[in-house]
Design a protein around this nucleic acid. Structure first.
Length: 571
RNA sequence: GCGCCCAUAGCUCAGUGGAUAGAGCAUUGGUCUUCGGAACCAACGGUCGGGGGUUCGAAUCCCUCUGGGCGCACCA
């Protein structure tokens, strides 16, 4: 299916060139012009503003528009090209051509508006990447939905896409998790839970660990009584990860690759990365950063011994960052740089990284690391997702994994539906802080736009059931029987291609959610007014309308699937 | 204090430097003998946080102020 705004842009460029060749326009470098869908019927279906050409052409914009129009070779999909003051060109689609697109839509089916933007390119989307220390909570889920939807849109744009989960299983949090399970295990064996002051700060209180401890007792009995945290960490990690994987599967999220942070230690990759950074002169060993201000000299870091630092200030960072602590243990930064080096070495043309807003600085540092290794940081694109605050009973709830105080994604799915969860978390720009109102999500599900969109698809499915029962088919439909209401819907269908393109271009998956709602918004009035199985509707008209609804169903299904939602036949 | 993000209708939010700023919810009033009413139609509702600037043109870009969120570790 054609992207009409691209076709139009090409024709306009040709017209300008032709006008210049004919001497009707002065010569100037032709800039990119913005073709947009018109908001009002009297402004055509698409329009372009040529005012930006006034200065380079040294002509008044209305005259420029007129000259372009005179040299414009009208393609088959256009009926009218006209100018409007002070310098617009309006384009109106040809209705016969538009009606015929019903067949194209049906023919393309599930691949409707499959673009070639990413043809031959490999993209990777890394998302979720939560430490397996607790069940997924709603805050994390936003990034999960955003990442998966982005992956679907990239696929629609023609990219070969891999979904990856970076599994932080190497750090102190995992040690704390292991130790927490160990204490729960001992508790199940009859030893009362008594926490040292240190443990009080690091203990994971969630009930899931009690469940794991009980299972562990069933598995190994008392055999682990004297073990340290390590086997407990391994056990908890496996269990927790399985839990997260199952939760994600409920909202149809499946990763292709699970990348273990541990593997970067096992293979020695992090030390190779450190070595490479060192060879390029970005690393030094010191007790304090070499550009430390005098007032830093007496802070808590002084006297800890020599750490290995990264000269991130050379890239504009506020301060140099520690890669290896004085204890000899790497910080999170070093394996993260090594991980990105690994990603880029795998030959992706695009690496999308979905992160919570609280990881901004950390990611900057990693980016500097990638740059200092001489790698192409422009291939790495971050979608920074602002945090989700949870509201219940009109009050904001603070979520904390360690305190076991959070709403899990599983609970939310239980109380609503996988489709509702996906839509609610997608239906906002990632730039905005989101207040997730639990009461609203749960209690007012009937007013939720997700059902409004899906109902449009249900109505299509319903009409075909009824038509089949009455022996009416859309075989050999004559589309000239379609009217203005159907045309309005078809015009909007063409914007799906643009939405996919813009979503990928700006890395903004929420666009598809708004488009789907607009589409449904346009569909329902049409469905109400355009009757098919009605005694007063002539058979040929009924056939054409049925054909139209088959195309509408294809579009609705496509939009729903791009959001990872189901397209139900009944509700 | 520094960095990133946000401020648009009563609420939740869209909006690519272009023509008269849009949805959903809420409120009010209508529509129904035919395919599923989780529907449709209409009304109401706006100093686009304030102030400067750039531009033929600014919700959009720049500066500044105010008010929120997040981050500024030898945590992950």
């Amino acid at each position: 299916m054609k992207l009409l705004h691209h076709e139009l842009a090409r024709h306009i460029q040709d017209a300008i060139a032709a006008a210049q060749a004919a001497g009707d326009l002065t010569r100037f470098d032709i800039p990119d012009l913005e073709i947009r869908a018109s908001k009002r019927a009297e402004q055509g279906d698409y329009n372009v503003a040529v005012m930006p050409l006034a200065k380079p052409a040294k002509m008044n914009p209305f005259e420029i528009a007129k000259q372009i129009t005179l040299h414009f070779i009208k393609p088959d999909f256009l009926a009218v090209v006209e100018v409007a003051p002070p310098g617009y060109i309006n384009f109106r689609l040809d209705e016969a051509w538009l009606r015929q697109q019903v067949e194209t839509i049906i023919a393309e089916g599930d691949d409707l508006f499959a673009l070639e933007l990413g043809k031959g390119k490999r993209a990777q989307v890394e998302f979720v990447s939560a430490n397996p220390t607790a069940p997924l909570h709603i805050g994390r889920s936003r990034g999960a939905v955003v990442g998966d939807t982005m992956a679907r849109l990239l696929q629609a744009a023609g990219f070969d896409v891999e979904r990856e989960y970076y599994f932080n299983n190497a750090g102190a949090q995992m040690r704390n998790l292991g130790n927490s399970l160990r204490l729960r295990y001992l508790e199940v064996l009859g030893q009362p839970l008594r926490l040292s002051d240190d443990e009080k700060k690091t203990f994971y209180q969630g009930e899931y660990l009690i469940t794991f401890a009980e299972q562990l007792v069933e598995d190994v009995g008392e055999a682990w009584r004297e073990h340290d945290w390590q086997p407990f960490k391994k056990y908890a990690e496996v269990k927790m990860f399985e839990m997260i994987r199952q939760t994600l599967a409920r909202i149809d999220i499946h990763h292709d690759v699970f990348f273990n942070e541990n593997s970067l230690y096992d293979s020695g990759a992090i030390w190779e990365t450190l070595d490479a950074l060192d060879k390029r002169g970005y690393v030094y060993k010191a007790a304090l950063p070499e550009n430390a201000e005098p007032e830093d000299m007496d802070d808590a870091n002084a006297g800890k011994g020599e750490a290995v630092w990264f000269r991130s200030t050379q890239f504009g960072d506020a301060k140099d960052r520690v890669l290896v602590k004085s204890s000899g243990e790497p910080t999170y930064t070093l394996p993260d740089i090594a991980y990105h080096q690994n990603k880029l070495a795998r030959g992706f043309d695009l690496c999308v990284n979905v992160l919570g807003a609280d990881h901004y600085v950390q990611h900057q540092v990693v980016r500097f690391g990638v740059q200092s290794l001489g790698l192409d940081a422009s291939k790495v694109h971050v979608i920074l997702v602002q945090l989700v605050a949870l509201m219940r009973g009109g009050e904001i709830i603070r979520m904390s994994s360690r305190a076991g105080n959070f709403e899990t994604l599983d609970d939310l799915i239980d109380q609503t539906s996988p489709d509702a969860v996906r839509y609610l978390l997608l239906n906002r720009s990632t730039d905005t802080n989101m207040v997730f109102d639990l009461d609203l999500a749960v209690s007012q599900t009937n007013e939720n736009p997700v059902y409004y969109i899906q109902y449009a698809h249900v109505r299509c499915a319903g009409i075909f059931r009824e038509a089949a029962a009455r022996g009416v088919t859309d075989d050999g439909a004559d589309l000239s029987h379609l009217g203005e209401a159907e045309m309005r819907f078809l015009r909007r269908v063409f914007e799906l291609g643009e939405v996919i393109e813009l979503s990928v271009h700006h890395m903004e998956p929420h666009r598809i959610a708004f488009y789907a709602l607009e589409l449904a918004n346009l569909f329902h009035p049409v469905f109400d007014s355009v009757r098919v199985l009605h005694s007063e509707v002539p058979p040929e008209t009924a056939k054409a309308r049925l054909r139209f609804f088959r195309a509408a169903q294809v579009v609705l299904k496509r939009a729903l699937h791009l959001m990872g939602m189901s397209a139900p036949e009944v509700m």
